[in-house]
């Protein structure tokens, strides 16, 4: 009962925060609220028994996404100068959208109904077969890296493309001198270097964050975690360091060539594991082929390698993107 009440509370908060984001015209407030939105969303996922997703949403949605928004704000504007109200077409589209959804969900199975069809077709097979076929405790990892490993491969390439895109847009093309005034930029992006307490306390956190990231990477088979979360955590550690110490110190710690290399190497590693399986006589991404005597051991090896590839790419991408934004204002 208490979980239900808690869940209702969180969901109501979500709506309130979303409306607050819509109403504010200060972009800085909107960004901070959207960080809070993600954090509540993550708590909500945790209540719904989705530990892996909660961890990912907390790190990526509340952490990295907020930092990127702030980085972009420093380079653009602080105020939303949209005309206040009176837009009819968006209102009609939104209301139409909402009513269609409500029409549909009136026939949806209630939350947690064990007789719902989603729980009775493919899902039980994963829960039943994972111990036997793959033998890792975390079923989410098994599905992510092996049963639906092809999706995850695609996913790694999505972040890879995002990184290439940000670099193509911000990395190498030099901005015009007058595009944003230096004082204006500095005012918006004063880093925390001169605040002694956040600097000391924050810096103490950095090694623990990175360590936790590595734990999440290699413990992902057993508990919640895996490459995406680990990569985002390690990157968050590096980003925190850069925020506290200044961007250039962060680039000394993880130079740009290294993060680009990580990005490409991780994606390449994942694709190569797939091709290696074909060379060993199996199908693409069939890790069982990696060990001809013991297919379960082959699965372990395959999952370890592809999760490593995911972790490398995500770490590299997040750091590269952050630096691309942070460096843009400093010429």
């Amino acid at each position: 009962m208490i979980t239900i009440i808690f869940s209702l509370f969180l969901l109501t908060m979500l709506v309130l925060v979303a409306v607050a984001i819509l109403r504010t015209d200060n972009l800085f407030t909107a960004v901070m609220l959207s960080g809070i939105f993600s954090l509540i969303m993550a708590a909500n996922f945790f209540v719904l028994d989705a530990a892996d997703v909660a961890l990912t949403e907390a790190v990526i949605g509340a952490g990295i996404s907020t930092v990127l928004f702030l980085g972009a704000l420093a380079l653009t504007a602080e105020k939303d100068r949209s005309p206040p109200v009176g837009s009819v077409v968006p209102l009609i589209s939104a209301v139409a959208l909402g009513s269609v959804i409500i029409y549909a969900v009136m026939q949806a199975p209630r939350l947690g109904d064990p007789k719902a069809v989603v729980h009775n077709h493919v899902a039980p097979w994963y829960l039943e077969k994972t111990p036997e076929l793959i033998d890792v405790p975390n079923v989410v990892t098994a599905v992510l890296a092996s049963f639906r490993g092809y999706d995850t491969l695609g996913e790694v390439f999505v972040v890879f493309i995002a990184c290439m895109g940000v670099m193509a847009l911000l990395g190498r093309v030099r901005p015009r001198k007058d595009s944003i005034k230096l004082t204006e930029y500095e005012e918006r992006s004063r880093n925390l270097r001169h605040h002694l307490i956040p600097r000391i306390v924050g810096k103490m956190l950095v090694p623990f964050i990175v360590l936790f990231g590595l734990y999440v990477q290699f413990h992902g088979d057993f508990g919640p975690g895996g490459g995406f979360q680990a990569g985002a955590l390690v990157a968050a550690g590096v980003i925190l360091y850069s925020l506290l110490e200044g961007d250039w110190r962060g680039r000394e710690l993880v130079p740009e060539w290294f993060s680009s290399l990580l990005v490409a190497a991780g994606a390449f590693l994942y694709a190569s594991v797939g091709v290696a399986c074909m060379v060993m006589g199996g199908r693409f991404l069939d890790y069982s082929a990696l060990d001809s005597h013991d297919p379960v051991h082959g699965q372990h090896l395959g999952i370890l390698l592809v999760e490593l590839g995911v972790g490398m790419t995500v770490t590299g991408v997040m750091i590269t993107i952050f630096h691309a934004f942070a460096r843009r204002g400093v010429r």
Binding site: L153, S260, V263, A267, G274, G281, G282
Partner: peptide, 25 residues
């Protein structure tokens, strides 16, 4: 599995494999 059977996967694998290389060139 002959190469011929693997063609559908290669249709996707070849470009995915080449893209990171092209990025580093």
């Amino acid at each position: 599995m002959t190469l011929y059977d693997q063609l559908p996967a290669l249709l996707i694998a070849v470009p995915l494999f080449t893209a990171p290389i092209a990025y580093l060139l």
